[in-house]
Write a protein that binds this DNA or RNA. Sequence first.
DNA 1: CTGAAAGCGCTTACAG
DNA 2: CTGAAAGCGCTTACAG
Lengths: 329, 329
Amino acid sequence: MPRKITMADIADMAGVTKSTVSRFFNGGSVGDATRQKIQEIIREYNYEPNTFARLKARESNVAGVVVPSLNSKITSRVVTSVGRYLREQGYEALIKDSDHSIERELKNIQRLMLQNVDGILLSSITITPEHVRLLKDCPVPVVVLAQDFEQGISVTQDDYGAGRAMGRLVGESHPRRAAYLGVDESDRAVGIDRRQGVLDGLREKGVADVLTFAGDYSYQSGQHMTALALEQGPVDAIICATDRLAFGAYRVLDERGLRIPEDVSVAGFGGYDEGELLKPRLTTLKFDSYALGYLGAETLLKMVREEPVPKKQIVDYQMILGGSVNMNR
Amino acid sequence: MPRKITMADIADMAGVTKSTVSRFFNGGSVGDATRQKIQEIIREYNYEPNTFARLKARESNVAGVVVPSLNSKITSRVVTSVGRYLREQGYEALIKDSDHSIERELKNIQRLMLQNVDGILLSSITITPEHVRLLKDCPVPVVVLAQDFEQGISVTQDDYGAGRAMGRLVGESHPRRAAYLGVDESDRAVGIDRRQGVLDGLREKGVADVLTFAGDYSYQSGQHMTALALEQGPVDAIICATDRLAFGAYRVLDERGLRIPEDVSVAGFGGYDEGELLKPRLTTLKFDSYALGYLGAETLLKMVREEPVPKKQIVDYQMILGGSVNMNR
DNA sequence: CTGAAAGCGCTTACAG
DNA sequence: CTGAAAGCGCTTACAG
């Protein structure tokens, strides 16, 4: 296998020192003839400097991106969007997947802090006191995505407001008894804020009898919680913390011969394309995940450049009306 | 903001030189008392060495992973699986998303080659002559995922065989006229091999009248190609290169009042969970993407250790029988 | 077991 | 405009 080509090799071939080649890449002054020559050689060898060897550079032009998983639709949207913005700005994304483990998440943050990244985008599973302690000593700017972060800068979704909007919408259908299929409170944004919004929205419309459940984010969990809800007697409406959970609800309701929305209304959060495939189409609420990623990355780079940024930004959401909520009652 | 802590800082605090701290981390000989002391200090400061500063190390313990997109279900499964294996082995994944651009993919490969990674996992959009040229000069081992790679090592799916199995299955339903909704030939595995398998499988069962289409991987494309197929007269069976395309077919057939499978059989590839939600459930074929990632990573690390590896490995697939193919004809 | 020194691939003042 | 030198955070022979 061939040896790796380095900046020194390029310099030799161009008959200059690596100082000059380095300046060529970093926008320092380089003579026209020299520039030509270097240009030719790097093209021939397809050379690009090793970003990670820039140990002495003031800026590394690398941003760390910590994500809870690479398997989630929402996260995929966020990192794709973050990646695009960073690329446009000449930055590279260093993606760290925590694979659903909070210890790995903390470790990932810890590592990035000591690596030469210019900043960190943290799409956290949940912000624990350990997170706060760790981030307090962070030598580079941090932007938290999709979770509130009192101690610093965040770009979030209005989980409470969205929940409330959905609660009201479903409340309009006047269910006698509703169920909320949620997730564990360790995820503050979804587990607590979103749920509270839904409950408040329902109450505003006079719906007070609400069963609440908490599971994980899986399709199976949606099925399981739906079954649990039905065991406790008749339910008119099921609001699910995510579309995937709603998919599970659809299946169980179908198995039991319960019609949507005539017998039971169903609603979700997420706006997954697949909701469109259901009969009836799922009523859901879609957060602008692309905006979340974009704004997060933009805010981080502003912080790197020491420009002022808002402490908190909230992205928009959009209600997608399917036919799964009974509006004729 | 606090300064970054470095190995030299740790060494100072422990009253030794950084040589010793480095040996501590890399398994060199360190006295018991010294070991204790260093242990304490790194715990207190949560220190971990900067992986990317290991410029002189023989091995970086980093593997590059190039993916066409972070938005695809299959890719998500593959990188999750790759990440898990690498982590178990004390390796780190450096993920490079090409965001559907072949130029970016080449650039990503190029960059990784010059960065200090021990090897590269390439989940390529397609292998072009440029890929071959570039990879020929690669200073580190490369494993190609999900595409044949004559010039080197690959872990693939049996796209042809899987296509043929599906072709035969649908052929058993004796459609008078079938349609295949595919993708561009630039993706060799899916665009050519899978399609050819389907066509051959159908032919084996006596189905020769097959309309073929090519689009992209989107839901919209599935709808569009289905509409095109129906314009050309009645069609009994639609085989789609991916489940997403099949979702599009479902929608259009539904809109036209055509029943699945009574009027038209539909089949896909992918085994997405969402196929289960459809009525009837989608008949689909699922490749073992987790095995693909796992084996790919395992093979790469073997190559790094200069152990022998097979030139080509093929992962298994599984037929998932839904109710979308009419078996009563 | 431990340290001094050289070096990895790059960047940055500082001279000239 | 260009180069020599020092340095980034780490690793590795080589002495002792």
